[in-house]
Structure formats: C-alpha cells, structure tokens
C-alpha cells in the first residue's frame, strides 16, 4: 500500500513535485501535434504549453514565471522551428500572469483562469506575428498576410486554449495547493 501523502518525507514530496512538473510539461508538449475531434478550429489546436505557463505563473513570482516561459518556449521551438522563437512570447505571458493583481481584480476560479488564458493566447500570437514581421529575409511572407493569419490564429487559439485551460489548471492547482498545505503542516 502507498502511504498517505502526509506521512511522506519532505525529500520524497519534493521529488514527486518535480515528477509531476516534468510529467505535466511532457504531456502538454506531446498534446501539441495531436488533433482530436473537438480539439481543433480551422486546423488550429489549443496551445497546451501556454496553458501550462499560465497555470504555473498564477501563484508564483515573475522570475519563476519568466523562467518557465523560456524553458517551455524552447521546447516548442524544438517541436516546430527555432526562428522566430516561441520563448519570447511565453516568457512575456508568464511575466504578465505573475504580475496580474489577481487577488484585487479576479477571483481564483476556472472562469478567471480561462479569461487570463484567452488574453495571454492573443498576446503570445501577437509576439509571434511581430517577430515574423521584423524578420527581413526574402522568403518571409508579406506583412498583410502575416497579420491576416494572426487574426485567425489568435482568435482560434484563444478560444480553444481558454476552453481547455481547466483541464490543465485544475489538476495542477489541486496538486500545488495540496503540497503547500502539507509543507505548512510539517
């Protein structure tokens, strides 16, 4: 039998926390190339890594959030192409989420998390579009097309990501709250 979490040693708890973190990031990254029915809108799926960054950053410092954004951005770069980088957008998303005065303006619930994800998805896509616009290479697409695609990508991504946000946020938040509680007990 597995012992209840409250009897685990702090080191074991910490290890489990890192396993949960890396495991959830891996799951989000693996979900990116997947397109299941109900998970796509005009060929665009939810941005799972962005949802993870928001879930991570909500109760953490700006520095931790930016670090997570950069790391997950690098992973997404690896899965697509490294230039322009996704790390910039996700780092900004983490920073803004961490700095949001949530206790003042927003309640801690699914609706507000979905709202934050909606806004952050638009910001992340905008950063990508800006980077594409600033590339000066002969094969870069023309500005008008980039921003037309940006509208479509930002809207679809924002809608889908915010709808799927609770699926990532709920279990992670539950785990981190539980962990916090256990640490305060001991």
């Amino acid at each position: 039998m597995i012992k209840p979490l409250s009897q685990w040693s702090p080191i074991a708890l910490n290890t489990l926390n890192w396993v949960v973190m890396f495991g959830s990031v891996a799951l989000c990254a693996l979900a990116l190339p997947l397109r299941l029915p109900g998970m796509e809108l005009t060929g665009i799926g939810p941005n799972w890594l962005l949802i993870w960054v928001v879930a991570w950053s909500i109760k953490r410092t700006a520095l931790q959030a930016v670090w997570a954004g950069i790391a997950l951005g690098f992973i997404q770069d690896g899965l697509t192409a490294p230039y322009p980088t996704h790390a910039l957008g996700l780092a900004l998303v983490g920073f803004l989420t961490a700095r949001l005065q949530k206790q003042r303006y927003l309640e801690e619930d699914f609706i507000s998390v979905a709202l934050i994800v909606f806004g952050m998805a638009v910001i992340a896509e905008t950063i990508m579009a800006l980077q594409f616009s600033l590339l000066n290479s002969p094969s870069a697409p023309p500005l008008a097309e980039i921003w037309l695609h940006h509208q479509q990508a930002a809207l679809s991504s924002a809608i889908l990501s915010s709808l799927w946000a609770p699926a990532v946020y709920y279990p992670l938040n539950l785990w981190w709250e539980r962990l916090n509680w256990l640490e305060q007990q001991s």
Binding site: L32, P33, Q76, T80, A81, M128, F132, A153, S156
Partner: peptide
Amino acid sequence: IGRSADHWW
C-alpha cells in the same frame, strides 16, 4: 502521426 505544434508553421 502528427500536425503542426504551433499556429504559424
């Protein structure tokens, strides 16, 4: 087995 992992490529 998979599609694009972001919305640009």
